[in-house]
Each structure stands twice: as C-alpha cells, then as structure tokens.
Design a protein around this nucleic acid. Structure first.
Lengths: 240, 240
DNA sequence: TTATTTCAAGAGCAGTGCTCTCATTTACTG
DNA sequence: CAGTAAATGAGAGCACTGCTCTTGAAATAA
C-alpha cells in the first residue's frame, strides 16, 4: 500500500486516483443512461465501454463484473428516489401528516413515471442470477419506508393518528412489528404499523401497475385522478 | 392450401400436424421449466433446443422468435394463475363474498410463491424490448380482475356491499369507471369500483413485495399472518 | 534512473438470437 | 405409382454478450 499524500481529508488523493474516480463516475453515468433507455436486463458492459470510447476489457479494471455495475446503479437509483421523496416530504410542514403522506406518494409515482426502467430495477422482477448485496443496498433501500414510518410516528406522537378497527394481532405478527418499532425508534402501536405496512405495499402496487402497464391500455384515461383517489383512501387507511 | 382430411372435428388433422402440435407443446413445457428455474430474461431458445434434442435453428420452424415463445409462456402462465384463482373462488359459496375474496387473495399469493419466476414475468418489470401482443394476452390476463369484479358485483346485487366514505369522484375518473362497469356488465357503483381498483392493485403490491423480496430479509418472520391481516383490511376496504 | 504498479488493447472462449442454405423426409396429386 | 411440393432438421455463419488472459505502454514511486 503506497503512503498516499497527506494533504487530503479523506476523498481526493493522487491524480491517478482522481482519474480513477472520474472514470467510475462516467461508467455509472453511462450505465444509468443505458438502464433508462433499454432496461435492466439489457444493460451491457460492452455497450457502456463503447460509449466510454474504450475496449470492453478495460472497464473490468473499474467494476469487476456486470453484477457489480448493477449494484452501483441500484444504489444510485435508490438514492435518487430517496432524495426525491425526502425533498417532497420536507416541503410540507411536519404537522400536516396527511399532506406529507400525499407528497410522499406523489413523489414516488412521479419518479417512477419519469424513470420507469430504474423503477423496474428497484421494484420489478429480480434480475435472474443477480442477488443484491444487502450490506450495500439496505440503507438506501429503506429511505422511503423510513420516511413513511416517520410521518406515521409524528402524527401518532401528536395524537393525530386515528385508531382504526380492532387492534388484535396474532402473536407472531405482533412480535415482528414490535421488533420493527424498536429498530426504528417509533412509538406507533402495532395495529397501526400493520396498516402502515399495507399502505406501503399498496402504494407501490398502484405505482407498479401504472408503470408496468398492468392496467389494460386505455382503461384509465385519467390516471392522475385515480392515483389521487388512492392517496386519499390510503391516508384514511393509515389513520392520517 | 391442402384439402385436409375430412374426418376431424376441428382439432387433429394429419399425423404431421399432430406431431407439430406435440413439438410445440414440448417446447412450451421445456420453456416453462427453464422459465421457472432461471427466470424470464434468462430464457434461452438454444437451451430449450438442447433439451429438446434438436439444433437451435430447428426450433425456429415452430416458434418464430424468442419473443413469441415468451408470449406463449405468458399466456400459459396467465391461464395457470386464472385456473388456480377461479378454482379457489369457486370452492367458496357465492353468498360468502368476503370468503371468496379471501380465497382469491390466498390463491394469488400461493401461486406467486410457488411460481416466482412466472409471477415475475406477469407482474414484474417488463422484459426489455418485448411488448406483449394485447390481442393474445388481454383475455387470459384479465381473468383475476374479472373474478374480483364479479365478487364485488354479486355482493352488491345482494345488498351486502357496504357504501363507504364519500362517493364524490372527479368526472374523468367517474367516466372511466362507468366504461369499465358497462364493459363488464357490472352494477357496482363507481365509488366502490374505484376502491375495488385500489384493493386489486394493493393485493398484487403485497404479493409482489413478498415474492420479490422487497421486505428486508428476516423483517417478517410470520408472512402468513401478515398477509391474512392484509386480506382482512382489504376486504373491509372493498366493503365486503 | 530504475522498478513497480496501473492501465488499455487485443485475442480468445463460451454463450446468445437469428438467418440462410442444403439435404432429407413426409404428404398430397396427376 | 411416380412426381411434385411442402415441411423439417442440420449446419454454417453473423453479430452480439460476459469474462479472462496476455502483452505492451504509460504513469508513479523509490
């Protein structure tokens, strides 16, 4: 291991390392472009190399494998979505829990419609033979659901989260939810957290149907209104 | 066009055509196998040809392209799911609408967990560059949602579908739902049909999260109980 | 300056979808 | 029955993929 110059604060070192970081950034940028245009399964390392003006074996100096590039793009997409959602949520006052939830939902849908291929990489069928490394994807992959839990928790702490329906949960499920609550430092009772889980998956179910074209072509001419309706019902369901 | 022997009733003709039909059936069977084992994007016509004991170009006498094989498998999977759902729904008395809905939901989840790769083909990210021909996939692809609408409609006709919440819908959405109602010959009011749409997408959202591993690994140790909870909440939401 | 590491290029392997040609087998017809 | 037309399978080939290995050149460190 070389001594490395001592002037850096942890990021930039030798000019060679700067060039290397730049090349990796270029590869991610081009990969994101290919991903957006042709989809995840069609992502080709050779094509990225061509766009980079370099022979295919050269990019193996930087990424190691196609799967590793996929992981980089996965994290990149998770963070992009997380940024969009957190910005949208943050633009609504914290007391307006229902408004924050609506902003979160609209941000997810908007990003998904803007980036269908990247959304498909995150929430579609798993790429065959590819298993995302949990240690690198868990943190960015939980930003949206963390936002949602925080909205629920804030509302609950303010006494504005309605108790709905019977709160009897089977013991194993209650235990799972207790563990989640503990890990996130939330105070939301289990029954509401269970409903929150359903709201969470329902949101992505609605978005996936629209983005993946599961509604028949031309079935809904007013998708915006449909989604706003869903937001209202889901907010009620969550107790907001 | 050859005269074709006149003994048939519309299905089996010459021995050659029987052999041809058999070969196509074998290709679909092997394709389904590969699909289940390696996923949609990894489906290889050459591999199917190898298993069939034939050279790759020979398979092109029967299927035309990889995309056409994908379409065959898509229809095959839609029908398999449709069979499972309709059988499950049919095993519950028609008056028990809530029970029929639960049976439908459990059938979808069960089939999806049994056939994750085929489920992914139907409800996951679209295969890049492949567009399913609507005229061949629409009918089998709507069997599940048709079942759901029929359950809601039966309950409504029996006066057992609760009106929930305000029924004010924006005009464009109301028009879309009116068109759907007309096409399916249903009587369910628009507001309940809108909720039914959300229930529909929410069901598949919950199933997709579980099948695609979107819940963190080990987050839910009791997925059955979680899903049963979701069924109950969704049934309430639908008004059942 | 010398030695070491880093890098890009090229060849090559095994796989893919798909097209084309060619010989053979099957089926229909005069 | 003989002849013709259609269907079939094999094989070669093209362009593409991920990935490995070797080779020569360039940048860096000693």
């Amino acid at each position: 291991m070389p001594a490395t110059s001592q002037t850096d604060g942890g990021e930039v070192r030798t000019p060679r390392e700067r060039a290397r970081a730049q090349t990796i950034a270029d590869i991610i940028r081009l990969g994101r472009q290919h991903l957006a245009e042709h989809g995840a399964a069609a992502l080709s390392l050779r094509a990225v190399a061509r766009d980079l003006g370099v022979v295919s074996s050269a990019v193996y100096r930087y990424v190691g494998s196609r799967d590793e590039l996929l992981t980089l793009l996965l994290v990149d997409a998770y963070n992009d979505l997380g940024d969009a959602v957190e910005a949208a949520v943050g633009s609504v006052p914290a007391e307006e829990s229902r408004g924050r939830f609506a902003a979160l939902a609209r941000a997810v849908r908007g990003w998904a419609l803007r980036e269908p291929a990247r959304y498909g990489l995150l929430f579609g069928s798993p790429v065959p033979g590819y298993q995302a490394p949990a240690e690198r994807t868990t943190a960015p992959g939980t930003r949206v659901v963390n936002s949602l839990v925080q909205i629920l928790d804030t509302a609950h702490r303010a006494g504005r989260l309605a108790e709905r329906g019977p709160s009897v949960l089977p013991a194993p499920l209650a235990a799972d939810l207790e563990a989640i609550r503990h890990e996130l430092g939330a105070e939301v009772p289990g029954a509401l957290l269970a409903r929150g889980t359903l709201v969470w998956t329902s949101l992505f179910g609605a978005v996936s149907f629209e983005v993946f074209g599961q509604y028949g072509a031309g079935t809904f001419s007013a998708p915006d209104e449909l989604f706003e309706h869903h937001i209202a019902v889901l907010a009620d369901l969550a107790g907001l």
